[in-house]
Nucleic acid binder design. Structure first.
Lengths: 145, 145
DNA sequence: TTGACAAATAGGAATGATTACTATATAGTA
DNA sequence: TACTATATAGTAATCATTCCTATTTGTCAA
């Protein structure tokens, strides 16, 4: 556990250095906070969490930082249908089951999905960077509403 | 072609009657306009199109109507990463290739993707209504920017 | 280690999408 | 045809996101 945390931190430093992003206390904190998160938080949720440590951090900084992290690939934007942006750490490939009632997103891993073949027709249309399966439905909690 | 159009229209009437949605000129027009669309338009884009026919239709009506259609299943909300909501007619199952640069969404059909198996673990978490594969990457247009 | 400078930040204001409100009009039904 | 629940237009309010500016701070080269 400890070791993995160190690895993640090293990846963060390396990637930032690589992409010429300065390591600031704000960025370190935001990265740590999102790395811990398992709930696909919104920018506002992260803002509330980091304010406990850096009480005068601005929302804009949190928001911009999350978008920067997304651009350099250490954070993912979760696909959704137009609500607030939601973020997640980009630590290992996984897929989503999304409840259409409560909008909760459940992560799951699946090797078959990771290895899904890209159709030839699509290969011609561009370069594929990411493959994600989205299962939509109604979760158990909402089913028994 | 003519026949398919009639079928789509019948489906629209049946589904609205079924869900107790009144058939209004506004709704018919919005449905027709989206059915023709192949570009995953935003509510605003649909608003601009229907205004050519109903010049004083309100944006709110268009927006609410699209959301109603989504709820009764004759329209899909396109999964994205937090930009404006985008809509598409729900006429046949398909999948998406999304360019992370220009945000264009390319539709494609693929039987293998339609038939993808739902993991047991997910089956326990809820009822799956929809399966969608999202391929992300950079499209040819953006590649040669 | 220090100084210079591009990059990043806080705070707040502006923008743009979405939702809410209300008086009026209308589709569906008896 | 007349009634009634819905739907609509027009507008206002809300909320997420982005922009702006003066100030601060990492980073890098000397």
């Amino acid at each position: 556990m400890k070791i993995e945390h160190e690895e993640i931190r090293k990846m963060f430093y390396d990637k930032c250095a690589d992409k010429r992003l300065k390591i600031t206390p704000q960025r370190s904190l935001i990265f740590d906070e999102l790395s811990k998160a398992t709930d696909h938080p919104t920018a506002d949720a992260i803002y509330k969490r980091v304010r406990k440590t850096l009480s005068n951090i601005s929302f804009d900084t949190v928001y911009r930082t999350l978008l920067s992290f997304t651009e350099i690939g250490i954070v993912n934007l979760v696909e959704g249908t137009g609500e607030q942006k939601r973020f997640e750490p980009n630590l290992h490939q996984h897929h989503h089951f999304r409840c259409i009632k409560c909008h909760t997103i459940y992560d799951f891993e699946n090797d078959a999905y990771n290895d899904i073949a890209v159709p030839k027709a699509v290969q011609k249309q561009g370069v594929i960077i990411n493959k994600r399966v989205v299962l939509e439905g109604i979760c158990s909690k909402c089913k028994g509403k």
